[in-house]
């Protein structure tokens, strides 16, 4: 399956992916999150990055 990087529009080739999986774009290096849409299709969105302090 071929997907588009939302940052640089580069092609990203994927096989099996799961909801929430983080992929890296080989062209621009962006970290992208796999998002399954209501119609079952898959899109990539830029992953939100949260700091390491996840509490006690």
């Amino acid at each position: 399956m071929k997907l588009k990087c939302p940052e640089c529009d580069g092609d990203i080739e994927v096989k099996e992916v799961i909801e929430g999986e983080i992929l890296s774009c080989n062209d621009c290096g962006a970290e992208l999150e796999v998002n399954k849409k209501k119609d079952g299709s898959i899109e990539l969105k830029v992953a939100e990055s949260e700091g390491e302090d996840w509490g006690e």
């Binding site: 799961i18 929430g20 999986e21 983080i22 999150e33 992953a47 939100e48 949260e50």
Partner: peptide, 8 residues
């Protein structure tokens, strides 16, 4: 070993 985003 997969990187994944989950609910915070």
């Amino acid at each position: 070993g997969r990187k994944r985003a989950i609910e915070g």
